[in-house]
Simulated assay, not measured.
Amino acid sequence: MRHRYGISLGVSPREPLSRTAELARAVDERGFEALWYIDFQLGMKDVYAAMNLAALSTENVLIGAGVTNLVTRHPTVTANATAALDELSDGRAVLGLGAGWSAVLGAGGTPSRLAELRSGIDDFRRLFSGEPCDLDGNEVRLATAKRQIPVYLAVSQPAMLRLAGETCDGAVLMGAADPEFCSWQLDYIHQGLETAGRDRGQLTVDLFVTMSIGDDEASAIDDVRAWATSQAATFHPWKRMPPAWERFRPEFARAAGAYGLVDHLSLQAGHKHTVSDEFVKSVALVGDLDTCVDRLRQLWQLDIDRITFALLSGGREQRLAQLADTVIGAVETEGGS
C-alpha cells in the first residue's frame, strides 16, 4: 500500500497569486492527498484567495488552512469561507485550526487557551450542521452549510494532543521529524482517543515535516534553519518535552528572543542562526538522499496516517519534483510499504 503524503505552503508577498493555481495543479497531478495553506495575514498573501484558486485548479487533493485560528477570524467567518471552499472544490475542503501564533501575535492578540479551542471546535460542528445554534449567547445559523467539514487541530504539547484525540477528525502533528519525539506525542493522542472512547480510525494523524536534500550537509542544514528556528521559538514555553530534548532548552530561549514574525519561514530571515546544527538535524530531514529516505522510513513505523512536507520557498517546482519523483519513490520502492 502506498503511503499518504501532503504539501504545506504559503504564498509569499513576492509571488504572484496567479502562480498558486499552477503549483496546486502540480501537487494534485503528482498524487499528493492534502494541500495546506498557511494563514498568516502579515507575512503571506491571503489564504482564502489562494485556497479558492487551488480548488478551481485541482480535482482530487484535499485543501485547507494549515492552520487558522479563533482570534483573527470569527468562527462564523471561518465556517462560511470554508463552506465556500468546499463548494468550489466539490467537497474537498478541510479546516485546520490552531491556538494561533504568528497570525495572532502579529496582530497583537493572545493565542487561544485549551478551553477556548475545545469550545471553538464544538462551534464549528454546530455551524456546519446548518441548524440554529447558540454561539456566545446568540442564536445563529450558517445558511451556506452543506456537510460536516473535517476539523483538524494543530497539536504539539500534551493537552492539545489529548484534545485532538478526544474531539477532532484530524491532528496536524507539529514539532519534529524525530521518531522519538513523535512517539512521545502520539502517546498523548492515544490517551485522548481512549478517554473519549473513540476508535483510532476516527482520527487522521498528519505529521508536518520539512526537508532539504543535498550532498553538502552544511548547505542542506542552512536551507531549513529558518524553519527550525520557528519551531524552536514555539518550544520555548513548553513545560514538558521528551527528556532527550531538554538539552535544547537554551536554544529555544534564544530563538524566542530573536524570532521575527514578518520573516516567518523566510530563507533570508535574520533570526535563523540562533539554533545549532544538532537541533536542525533533529527537527528536520536534512542530508543526502539516503539519510532522508532512511528517516522517512523510521517515521512511517509510527502510528501516523499522512506525512505533509512544508514546501519551502526558493525553487518550489524543483523541490516538489525532487520530493515526488525521487524521495517518495525511493521510500515506496525500498521498504516503505
Rank of each mutant, 00 (worst) to 15 (best):
V67Q: 00
V67T: 00
T68A: 08
T68W: 01
N69P: 00
N69S: 01
L70V: 01
V71N: 06
T72M: 08
T72W: 09
T72A: 06
R73F: 12
R73H: 13
H74R: 12
H74P: 04
H74C: 05
H74S: 06
P75Y: 02
P75F: 02
P75R: 02
V77Q: 15
A79L: 12
A79K: 05
N80R: 14
N80I: 08
A81E: 15
A81G: 09
T82P: 04
T82D: 10
T82L: 15
T82W: 10
T82Y: 10
A83W: 03
A83C: 11
A84K: 12
A84R: 09
A84D: 12
D86W: 02
D86I: 03
D86E: 05
D86K: 01
D86M: 06
E87P: 06
E87A: 13
E87T: 04
E87S: 12
L88R: 02
S89C: 13
S89A: 12
S89Y: 07
D90S: 08
D90L: 09
D90M: 08
D90A: 06
D90R: 07
G91L: 05
R92D: 09
R92Q: 12
A93Q: 05
A93P: 06
V94L: 15
V94K: 08
V94C: 14
V94R: 10
L95A: 07
L95F: 08
L95S: 01
L95Q: 06
L95D: 03
G96V: 07
L97I: 03
L97W: 01
G98S: 04
G98L: 03
A99Y: 01
G100H: 01
G100A: 04
W101M: 14
W101K: 07
W101Q: 11
S102Q: 13
S102W: 09
A103K: 11
A103L: 14
A103F: 14
V104E: 10
V104C: 09
V104K: 05
L105V: 05
L105Q: 10
L105I: 07
G106C: 11
G106W: 11
A107N: 09
A107P: 02
G108K: 13
G108M: 14
G108F: 15
G109D: 10
G109K: 07
T110Q: 15
T110E: 15
T110G: 11
T110W: 15
S112D: 13
S112F: 10
R113S: 12
L114W: 12
L114H: 10
E116D: 09
L117F: 07
L117V: 08
L117T: 03
L117K: 06
R118W: 14
R118G: 09
R118M: 11
S119Y: 15
S119V: 10
G120T: 01
I121C: 00
I121F: 00
I121E: 00
I121N: 00
I121Q: 00
D122L: 14
D122S: 13
D123V: 03
D123P: 02
D123M: 11
D123F: 08
F124P: 00
F124M: 05
F124S: 00
F124L: 04
F124A: 02
R125V: 03
R125T: 01
R125C: 06
R125H: 09
R126F: 11
L127R: 04
L127E: 07
L127F: 11
F128K: 03
F128W: 12
S129F: 12
S129G: 12
G130S: 08
G130K: 08
G130W: 15
E131L: 12
E131S: 06
E131M: 10
E131C: 02
E131W: 07
E131H: 07
P132Q: 08
